[in-house]
Structures are given as C-alpha cells and as structure tokens.
Design a protein around this nucleic acid. Structure first.
Lengths: 196, 196
DNA sequence: ATTTGACCATAATGGTAAAAAGGTCAAATA
DNA sequence: TATTTGACCTTTTTACCATTATGGTCAAAT
C-alpha cells in the first residue's frame, strides 16, 4: 500500500467529485476549480492532495480498472467449469466495457489527447487479461476438456477476438442483442463450425 | 451502366489524379485545383466531369471497393473446399484492408468529416460480405462439413469477428504476424477448442 | 494538517481581416 | 459540338491579436 496523507477521506471525496464531473463533461471541459467547487472548496485545496490534474484522472481510472477486474474475477470464480468460466469472462468483460463506454462517452471526443493514457490502461489490463484467460484455458486442457495447444497463443487469439467485439459494441442496440452475440460467439469458440 | 460523357478517358485520368493526391495528402488538404494542376488543367475543367468534390471522392472509393470485392471473390473462387474458401476470405480481406488503411492513412485524421461516407461504404460492403460468407457457409453445410445452423446468424458472427480483427490490424507489426493470427483464428473457428 | 486567495505562465477562446477554397458561368478554343 | 478557360461569387479556412481561463505555485491564514 502506498502511504497516503492523513485524511484519506478528502482524497476519496475529491476522486468521487472528479469522477462525476469527468463523466458528465469529459476530461478537458471539467476544470480543477469545478471539481473543487462541487465540494465547496477552492482549487488549491485539490493540489494539497494531488500533484496535478492528470493524477486525478489516473485515480479515477485506477478505481474503474479495479472495479472492472474485480467484476471479471468474481464472475469467473463463480463459474465452475472452464467452459462456463470462458463464457462468464466474455460476457462480463463485454458488459462492463459497454457500460464504461457509455458512462464516459465524452472521452471519445477527446481521444487524441487521452491516447497515451488509454494506451497505458490497455497495456495494464492486457496483462491481467492474458493471465486470467491463460489460466482458464490451461485448466480446461488439464481437465482434458480443451484441445492442448500453446495456451499463450490461444489466450492472445481469444483476447484479440474479445477486443474485436469491443470495437463493435456500439452496433448492438440492446443488451439482449449483445448477450446473444457473445453467447453465440462463445459457442463457436468452444465447438467450432466443423461437424464432429 | 450510367451514361457518361463522351470522353471517358478524361474522367479516369481525373480519378487517377484525385486518387494519388487523396492518398498523399488526405481529402481536405487536396484541393480541386491541385487535382486539376496535376493534369495541366484548371479546376473548372474538373467540374465539367464531376458535379462536386465529394463525387470525386466517391469515384475513387467506388474503384477501391470494386478492387477489394474483386480480390476477395477471386481468392474465394480459387479455393476448392469450404474450409479453404473461409480461410481465403479471411486472409484476403485482412490483407487488402490492411493495405488500404496504409495507402489512405491520412484519412484517419479526417475521420469526423468523412464519417457519413465511411458509414455508407461499410453498409455497401456489408451486403456483399454477408452474402458471400453465407454462401460459403451454406455450401459447407450442404456438403456435410459444417454443422447446420442459421447461416445468416453465423455469417454475421464471422463478420463481426473479422471486423474485430480489422480494428486490431495496427497491432500487427509484420504481414507474417497478421497471417499467422488469421490462420490461427480460422482454425479455432473451424474446430473450436473443445476436444472431439 | 488544511485551506485559502493572490499570483504567474501558458493555453484556450473570440473576433476579424485577408487568403484560399468550392463552385458557377459566359466566352474562348479546338 | 465537346472541352477548356479565366473571371467571378460565396463560403470556409487561415493568421493574427487581445482577452480570458486554466493549470499550477506559494506564503499567509485557519
């Protein structure tokens, strides 16, 4: 754990305020003063807790990543078989990212400026995702339920496929449509299309 | 066929000039005068053949779509089995789109303005792609090589997956890496990951 | 230990005049 | 007749400047 200022509560309140405003107005359009005013303070109070605006954004993002990873982990652990875990992984990932991308819809307009940060986030998540997927796949192979292949390569392939789905998220009107698509794709992933 | 002006050669030369300059400088940054000057003419000469700048872009795009669809068709027809056709489809599609996105790299900076046109293109291609994929899949089912399911739903799923791959194209350093990824994904698509 | 307002440097914004662009057309060309 | 041209019009883009906002600092106040 990182050592923090005595008053951790102020930090979390500031992050909560920042989060709300970032979601509503985007990163650039919310000023540090806005974040402070929402707490009945003035911007220099913020700078007592955070070195700069970007670290506020990082704090918000860290929280969101934590929640995302937590949700996925929970869903995967809840499932019992490797097949179920894979399905849970794909569904949870897709739904959580979908809801994130609507909550932070304004960030898309600022993609150019936020790109370095986005890249960093992706790299950080990639690591977790590869590991999690790899262990699901390996468990399936151990149990003799999945074909034995290089689990790393396969994990990358599945991840590529999930990211592809992510890029197409906006094309799904309803949650139900997304769910059906994910389930269908998981089935194809599991069984292929060749007759057995 | 649309009725054209007598001198079709001028039209094609104008399109060629526009194509070259659009690739090099993007759509907005190439002026109609530039396109004309490259042919030793003045811009009003262009307007004798094309009603406006956008229709120049459309002509270029139509040509590129024609080539893209042609390449895919050729590759698919060349392959003999449904499995090979599927692989040929995925490989050719990925490589052709990859090369298009490098040739017209500047267009990404202008995404916002070109969006309506891009959407139109996608819709137009979607139709062809769905039909082609559907017929490959149906042929496979007829021959008893693919599991029988709703070919339309399956075609959409495969297409979704190919578009996902498309969104990740920039993450492949070499052509070889892309080829390997596509082949691996096609194998998963065909056989799934469950033991038989 | 926190909060504040005054302060600084830089970046965003608005307004404006000049330049460039898309597009039209009657006259010229061939 | 089929093209090409330059002059012309209107709208958009650019370049520039003054003003304002914003991110960030700091000594003093609480």
């Amino acid at each position: 754990m990182v050592k923090r200022s005595n008053n951790d509560e102020s930090r979390t309140e500031i992050v909560r305020s920042a989060k709300r405003l970032f979601q509503q107005y985007g990163y650039k359009k919310t000023t540090v003063s806005d974040i402070a005013k929402a707490l009945g303070k003035v911007k220099s109070a913020i700078y007592y807790y955070f070195p700069d605006k970007e670290s506020l954004l990082r704090a918000v993002i860290d929280e969101e990543i934590g929640k995302l990873i937590g949700s996925i982990n929970d869903a995967v652990e809840m499932a019992s078989t490797p097949e179920e875990k894979l399905k849970a992984y794909a569904l949870t990932r897709s739904f959580e990212i979908r809801s994130l991308s609507t909550e932070y819809a304004r960030f898309q307009e600022e993609y150019d400026e936020l790109y370095p940060l986005v890249k960093e986030i992706h790299e950080r998540c990639d690591h977790f995702e590869r590991d999690t997927l790899k262990s699901i796949l390996e468990a399936g192979m151990e149990l003799g339920r999945f074909n034995k292949t290089d689990s790393e390569v396969l994990a990358d392939a599945v991840l590529l496929w999930l990211k592809g789905l992510e890029a197409q998220l906006s094309s799904f009107g309803t949650e139900e449509a997304l769910k059906e698509a994910v389930e269908h794709l998981v089935n194809v992933l599991l069984f292929g299309i060749k007759v057995r």
